Computed example of a mutant assay.
Amino acid sequence: MNKLVKISDVFDIKYGNSLELINLEQCKSTDLHSIPFISRTEKNNGVSSFVFERIDIDSNPSHTLSVAVGGSVLSTFYQPLPYYTGFHVLVLYPKREMNVAEMLFYAKCISSNKYKYNYGRQANKTLKDILIPENPSINLIDRLSIYKTEIEQKLKQQPLITEKFDLNKSNWKSFLISDLFQITGSKTTPKQDLEDIGKGKYPFVTTQATNNGVDNFYDEYTEEGNILTIDSAVIGYCSYQPFKFSASDHVEKLIPKFKMNKYHAMFLVTILNLEQYRYNYGRKASQTRLKEISIKLPSRDEEPDFKFMENYIKSINYSKVL
């Protein structure tokens, strides 16, 4: 059996920057001199924003682990780029040479201890004493490395079609959402009921606007897949659900009245998420409101041009991994 040792035996543990996002200038990830800002969130690899790098603030180095010791305690992520951190985020430096697969393995090991903590119990004093394997098995690391390489190769693949399509909106027409979809509610399933049933392969879709709306996976479903969902509680976030799923409260369903494939869905989700400016906490994306809204789409002979939508998505980068 692999020997267990303390985290402090494998990593040097240091405090991050303890910065406040409000005091930094936010930007896009593609902007020159942008840098990830890592907070205590458990989503998006810990990245809550991108900010402009400042010459008076040293960044944390790449190829380290960020660990939230408050908030979403023990949310641990491998950081491939230099980054800043907010409060209560520690940085783990490997004491020996490790490849990416090993770092990802240890990130998962540390995150697996989340159950020991909650918002009233932070990990800033106890992180160093958490037990992790001294060395991951060679077989496991080899498998993780192969999987990582396969993912990287997929992301380097050419689009499904090489022809480029111009988004000339001059010939786009307005269509009622209700003419394209049957708009209805989903069955609300309490999360505790799903926890009692146990983990499985079916997504639990919520009103969150990250991770495709998926909070977790359980061995239960109430809804069929290949539909769109829209949150009617917050900002009207739309996502495509290809698989059977269960749902929390305020998750509306858009069931296509046409033969929809995943390429149509990706195009329509993008268009529908451009409508979020219409919604806020006082104005929800209710079924009644959705039935009254029109969206502009490529058209042909006064009908939605689904073939164009499909080909456009197939022509963009990473379409082969959809």
Rank of each mutant, 00 (worst) to 15 (best):
G185M: 07
Y119I: 02
N44H: 08
G70L: 09
V214T: 15
G198S: 08
C109M: 14
Q122A: 06
R40A: 03
V214Y: 11
K6V: 02
K148R: 12
Y106W: 07
N280E: 06
S299P: 03
V10S: 04
N124W: 09
K191W: 10
G120I: 15
Y263H: 06
H250C: 07
K244E: 13
Y237K: 10
P256Y: 03
S72G: 03
Q122F: 13
L92Q: 04
I130V: 14
K148E: 15
E102G: 10
P190N: 07
A107Q: 01
L19T: 01
S170W: 00
K164L: 12
Q192P: 00
D179G: 13
Q79H: 05
D193P: 00
Y240K: 04
V69L: 09
E150H: 07
S29D: 13
G86P: 02
E150A: 13
G46W: 06
Y84T: 00
S319I: 08
V251Q: 02
F204Y: 15
K199C: 10
N168I: 04
A101M: 05
Q241T: 11
T288I: 11
K14L: 04
E97W: 05
F306T: 04
D142Q: 14
F308W: 15
D31N: 08
K201T: 09
E150D: 11
Q287G: 15
A68I: 01
I235M: 08
K95Q: 05
G120K: 15
E20T: 13
L194P: 07
T188K: 13
I183S: 05
R283E: 04
K259V: 08
F267L: 08
D193I: 03
K108S: 14
G282W: 02
K284Q: 15
Q208E: 13
D196V: 14
I110W: 04
K257I: 06
S66I: 01
N139M: 07
N23P: 00
K14N: 08
L104A: 02
L268E: 01
N139Y: 14
I177P: 02
K114A: 10
D179R: 12
K291W: 05
E53I: 02
Y318T: 01
A68W: 00
I255R: 12
K201P: 00
S294Q: 13
F181A: 01
D196W: 08
N317Y: 01
E223G: 14
F308P: 08
S39F: 00
D31R: 02
L290F: 03
K296Q: 14
T85E: 03
Y117T: 03
M309C: 07
E102L: 04
D58K: 14
P159W: 11
L297W: 12
S299L: 10
E152C: 10
S246H: 06
S48H: 00
S48Y: 01
F245I: 06
L19I: 01
Y202H: 11
C238M: 09
P94T: 06
D166E: 12
V47M: 00
L74Y: 00
K116N: 08
P190H: 12
H88C: 00
E152Y: 03
V234W: 05
I35C: 02
K307P: 00
K307M: 04
D9Y: 02
T85I: 04
N135L: 11
S62C: 12
S137F: 03
S246M: 08
V234E: 15
S8T: 06
L90G: 00
S59V: 03
P203D: 11
L81N: 11
Q79F: 11
G70P: 03
S232I: 04
N273L: 12
V10A: 09
L19H: 01
K28L: 09
D249F: 02
